[in-house]
Design a protein around this nucleic acid. Sequence first.
RNA 1: GCCCCCGUAGCUCAGUUGGUCAGAGCGGCGGACUUUUAAUCCGCGCGGCGAAGGUUCGAGUCCUUCCGGGGGCACCA
Length: 479
Amino acid sequence: MEDDRRVKLERLRADGIDPFPPDFDGVTPIARVHAAHGTLEPGEETDVSFRVAGRLTARRGHGRATFLDLVDRSGRIQLHARLDVLGQEAFDRLTSLDLGDLIGADGTAFKSRRGELSLRTDAWRLLAKSLRPPPEKFHGLEDTETRYRRRELDLIANEEARRLFVLRSRVVAAIRRYLDEHDFLEVETPVLQPLYGGAAARPFTTHHNQLDRDLYLRIATELYLKRLVVGGLERVYELGKNFRNEGISPKHNPEFTMLEWYEAYADYEDAAARLEELVAYVAGEVGYSGELDLTPPWRRLTLRAAIEEWTGIDVLAAREPAALVSVARERGIADLDASETWPRLVDDLLSKHVEPALDQPTFIFDYPEELSPFAKAHRSASPEDRLVERFECFAAGIEIANAFSELNDPHEQRARFEAQRAELAAGDEEAQPFDEDFVRALEHGMPPTGGLGLGIDRLVMVLSGRRSIREVVLFPAMR
RNA sequence: GCCCCCGUAGCUCAGUUGGUCAGAGCGGCGGACUUUUAAUCCGCGCGGCGAAGGUUCGAGUCCUUCCGGGGGCACCA
């Protein structure tokens, strides 16, 4: 079958036609043709000529006339090719093209009897020959593996896929617009780091040959960004890839896009207000019309109240593993592992019993200190509860953001690293390595700061209603 | 790492309890057709059923292993 295409290619060359010409000037996006003439009446003709270019996706022949569908990034338009307009040779060559070929065409706008805006083609040119057949035109491409591994075919075959990734791009652009307008500075910090940190995750390790030294792909941008706040940049953000050497799941890709921002003279309440404002702004900019109510303010409740609401358990009244496991049993939750630490048990309750229920956007405030080595101690909670000023934000049943009032007391930060060092020694592969450069930076003085991390892939999932991260990542990790 | 499921033409799929089961639609090729849009009509199958073994008189159809994929669990605070 591909041989047919190669034969055609050679025939074109033999006829002196370049199947891969270098350029084609003066192309109008198809959407602009629709904008200009979408309101024509069925059967109405114009004298207005357009030059369009794109991929041939369908052909409906009628002897001495043929309809062809042409698709570009902005949309689809029908070409009407007539023998009496084009002449024999141009007509024959046009109608013997293969689906998937890229062509440019000039034609005047008219609306067919059935009401479809079309171009009466009077000239055309092959812009690139396609040597492989495109996916099936009606059912589209559905095979998941092909859609992910060969995304270009997904984009060719499925308009939904095109729309989704346009949406993703617009989401990212809107985020930048919002932050730029609010006086944030976009910065870039190292992806290759001598020490990883800022999140609990196992890193990818690589090696610098000349330095003969291992480096890590960043798992977060947090610590470098806070050093910039120390440096006086005050409002910074970075939007980029993080890498975590963990499992792949519908919510997890080994490399994923994260936004982190840090704002001096702000705390986690300010971060929450900014997040809901940002997301509402983005939703408006991309025309979100889904089921979620993203209008601020979003629901806010404490971690303690959230777990109590969905499980009936007051975790702060049972602040050690045995007590918590036993209270959970009374409430009919028997799958807690008594050998786990208390904070991990709390996290387990949150992720299994609360998170899946959080459909509408919701902030969960005030986490145990042990889970949050970079968050400031809570200003008003009783000290024995050992809570920090941290929230996570959930929507559509998944976590989308995490934020703190940043810990800026260098002595306390040093103590937290010491505690993490002990965890690391005890075998916790996700404990934070001691980052002396970061502590030194804090010793120079960091203003009170609110910081937040927002998972861009997950935000796009929420805004597009997709349930797998692989749907919103162009080239997701595959086995 | 564990469990379940899937893998048939370029694409989307159908193939009862193993015996014309190698099929359909789209695409392709040839022909008809100057307003169709999953265009229509006529003709042509272009793969040997993910791979390798095995059971059987006979295997897409049963068994084993391997490869690839999906889902779930664990993990991912």
